[in-house]
Design a protein around this nucleic acid. Structure first.
Lengths: 188, 188
DNA sequence: TAGTTATGGTACAAGCATGTTCCATACAGT
DNA sequence: ACTGTATGGAACATGCTTGTACCATAACTA
């Protein structure tokens, strides 16, 4: 059923997506020539696979979102409670710092694409639902606006990413820190 | 002692900095022509006041950092405790969403400038010291890495900024939410 | 009011990134 | 081994942005 794709194309796409993610994260104005050179691929090939720079960025963004999806896929079945699901989510997402960085830095370019916006909203919706479950089971405060809690998750992703870039704390410890902060804050 | 600056220059600089901050926040690749047009200023004038695009961005960044500085200036004298200082900080910083957005979106361009990096580090240092004070007075948990707490402040700025762009919660309520989350998290 | 100075418009040069076309070559599928 | 297809290099066109130079005009300062 799945169309057989030429092995050469698959290889080209994989390296282009990866080096594109890497370079564009560091500098969102990186030229396609730079990406092609670093990827060890002809500039022509890049244009043949992705018509425009815009489409390349979109392809990378969708790739990142798919990585997020598959990382959190088995979360529903493994979590023993809504609150536990948040802990598992931090564990699953925080190691994906490259994808996180790309999505954060190029957010504005992505926001103009309806397809990407749709994926974003679906994922945000999933988290929003999880917040409601947690409130229902009594583990999250009902007095706090759900919108705040949803964005707090992103804020803790950001906090962890920041900490990761400047210290040697590993992802697992960061996930524990994020979850603890999420539940109890940092006061004594 | 302060040199008298021509009123025309002052006016030009003010509008250029403001519209530049606004446009570059939305799209970091905005051209100087666009900024000049939107600012109602000749492109020549822009180049006369800021030699290159890089210098303009730097000038805007420094402006934003100065706004942050003056907003948190009277914090030491007003705070009744280290913990209270964090609350006042949220109240003071969260309304500065335009400046926050600019600094966040153009972080990578700024990171290459030693002068700006120095300001960043000084401000980070101030927060780090505040964290130590709070730990010393017993209001923050000593078991949590200070680096995490410092970045959490930024993470909560980010959370508040996100929430502000998509909901109608005002800055004051957001500051209370941020402070409450900072201390106690969001669990019941 | 007189003199100085900033402004803005036009014109110009140069560089760079995007996007296209063509062709010989190398590789994948069978 | 054979056939079709992807590749990469070169060459080219184009448009946009940066940065500079000049000049008449308008606005500020004293």
């Amino acid at each position: 059923m799945a169309e057989q794709i030429d092995a050469r194309i698959q290889k080209s796409q994989a390296t282009i997506i990866n080096t594109g993610m890497q370079l564009l994260s560091k500098n969102s104005e990186t030229s396609l020539s730079d990406i092609a050179r670093k990827a060890g691929v002809g500039r022509t090939t890049l244009y043949r696979l992705y018509d425009t720079k815009e489409k390349l960025i979109k392809a990378i963004a969708i790739h990142c979102l798919e990585v997020f999806d598959s990382a959190t896929k088995h979360l529903d079945s493994e979590a023993t409670s809504a609150l536990h699901a948040f802990h598992l989510m931090f564990k699953a997402i925080l190691p994906l710092s490259a994808e996180m960085e790309f999505l954060m830095k190029l957010r504005d370019l992505e926001e103009n694409d309806p397809e990407i916006v749709a994926i974003y909203q679906r994922q945000a919706n999933d988290i929003a639902q999880l917040v409601e479950y947690a409130k229902a089971e009594g583990s999250l405060s009902k007095d706090i606006a759900s919108a705040w809690v949803v964005n707090l998750v992103d804020g803790l992703f950001y906090t962890a990413w920041l900490t990761n870039t400047e210290s040697s704390i590993d992802h697992d410890a960061l996930a524990d820190l994020a979850f603890h902060t999420f539940c109890n804050g940092v006061a004594r």
